[in-house]
Design a protein around this nucleic acid. Structure first.
Length: 199
DNA sequence: TACATTTGACCGAT
DNA sequence: ATCGGTCAAATGTA
C-alpha cells in the first residue's frame, strides 16, 4: 500500500547491486588467478588490491542484505514466530547413553534468505566450516559454516553453501540468522560494521 | 602453539 | 528408520 515507486525502484536497485557485485567477483577471480601462482614478486600491490576489492564486495553485499531484510521482515515474518514455549522443557529423562547426550540444543527457526551466484561470494564475514553433508538427490555436498566469532561473541549466524552446477559453476548460499558480532577486518582504514539490529 | 578443516558419530524432526 | 544439521576428535596449516 505504501509508495509503489519505492517498491518498484527497489527491484532495480537490487538488480544493479547484484550486477555490481557479480562484476566485482569477476575482478576478484582475475586477481586471484594472477596473484595466486606467482612467487612473491609483486607481493605488495596485490594484497592492497584484494583489500580494496573486498571492501567493494562488502559494500554491495551489505546493501543487498539491507534491502532483503526490510523486504522479508515486513512482507512476512515467515518462520520467525514459531513456538518458544517448550524450549528446554522436555528433555528425555532417560539414562545416559553417552556423555554427549543433551549437549544439543533444540533446533530453533530463525530468519533465512538465499542467494545464488556463479562464484563463491565474499560477504564480508568470517566463517568457519563445521560440517559437510551429502544431500538426497543432489550431486554435490552441502557445506555448513558458522560465524568465527561464535564463541567469543555468541554470534549465531550460520550459512550453508551448496554447489548447484559444475560446468557453469553455480552456488546456492543460504544465510541463517543475523550476525550479532562486530567485525574489524581492516584495522588501519575503515571499520566495517554490519549491524545486527536491522529488523 | 593456535588456529581452521575434515569427517564419522550423534542429535532432533519427521 | 531416514534425513539433514551439529558436534568434536583427528588432522591439517601457518
Amino acid at each position: 500500500m505504501e509508495n509503489e515507486n519505492l517498491g518498484h525502484g527497489r527491484g532495480k536497485v537490487i538488480d544493479e547491486l547484484l550486477r555490481g557485485r557479480e562484476l566485482a567477483n569477476q575482478l576478484r577471480n582475475i586477481l586471484n588467478e594472477s596473484g595466486g601462482d606467482i612467487d612473491d614478486n609483486n607481493g605488495s600491490t596485490t594484497p592492497f588490491a584484494e583489500h580494496l576489492l573486498k571492501e567493494v564486495l562488502v559494500t554491495f553485499t551489505n546493501s543487498l542484505l539491507f534491502l532483503n531484510n526490510t523486504q522479508t521482515s515486513e512482507a512476512s515474518d515467515m518462520q520467525l514466530t514459531k513456538s518458544e514455549d517448550s524450549l528446554e522443557s522436555d528433555w528425555k529423562s532417560t539414562s545416559i547413553v553417552k556423555e554427549r547426550r543433551g549437549c544439543y540444543k533444540r533446533r530453533k527457526v530463525s530468519q533465512t534468505w538465499e542467494k545464488e551466484s556463479e562464484y563463491l561470494v565474499e560477504d564480508g564475514h568470517q566463517w568457519r566450516k563445521y560440517g559437510q553433508k551429502t544431500i538426497l538427490n543432489t550431486k554435490f555436498p552441502r557445506n555448513y559454516y558458522r560465524c568465527t566469532h561464535k564463541v567469543e561473541q555468541g554470534c549465531k549466524a550460520t550459512k550453508q553453501v551448496q554447489k548447484v552446477q559444475e560446468d557453469p559453476p553455480l552456488y546456492k548460499t543460504t544465510y541463517i540468522g543475523h550476525h550479532t558480532c562486530r567485525i574489524l577486518q581492516s584495522p588501519d582504514t575503515t571499520k566495517i560494521y554490519v549491524p545486527s539490529d536491522i529488523y
